[in-house]
């Protein structure tokens, strides 16, 4: 699997990164090299190997359903790049806001 400039462009949209033509060129080369390098894992037969996503074998870590204080609104909105008295503000979005 080799990486094309179009692949990189598509990934940059998925990753929400605007890349300049120069960045696209450079990343096509660099990511291509990295991808080739990590493809060495393909040498290993892992058909019967269970993936390991956590380094520790913990299960069932829960918290009680007990209310704790929330941030007050000023604290919550303090870092907002743009806000009004009550809400975060972002550029208008397309589509709906139904359940996803």
């Amino acid at each position: 699997m080799s990486l094309t400039r179009a692949d990189v462009e598509k990934v940059s949209l998925l990753a929400r990164l605007a890349l300049t033509p120069d960045e696209l060129d450079a990343l096509t080369v660099q990511l291509g090299e990295i991808i080739r390098y990590v493809q060495q894992l393909g040498e290993l037969d892992t058909r019967d190997v269970q993936p390991l996503s956590h380094a520790m074998d913990l299960t069932n870590v829960f918290a009680d359903d007990t209310l704790l204080p929330s941030l007050d609104r000023e604290q919550a909105l303090a870092n907002a790049p743009k806000r009004d008295a009550e809400c975060y503000r972002v550029p208008a979005m397309l589509g709906d806001e139904s359940s996803r």
Binding site: V38, L41, G42, L44, T46, V49, Q50, P51, L52, S53
Partner: peptide, 17 residues
């Protein structure tokens, strides 16, 4: 690509462990 890269890496991670 998930299987070829991420999942594969998790499997090799098991081998390393």
């Amino acid at each position: 690509y998930y299987e070829a890269y991420y999942l594969k890496a998790l499997q090799v991670r098991r081998l390393i462990r």
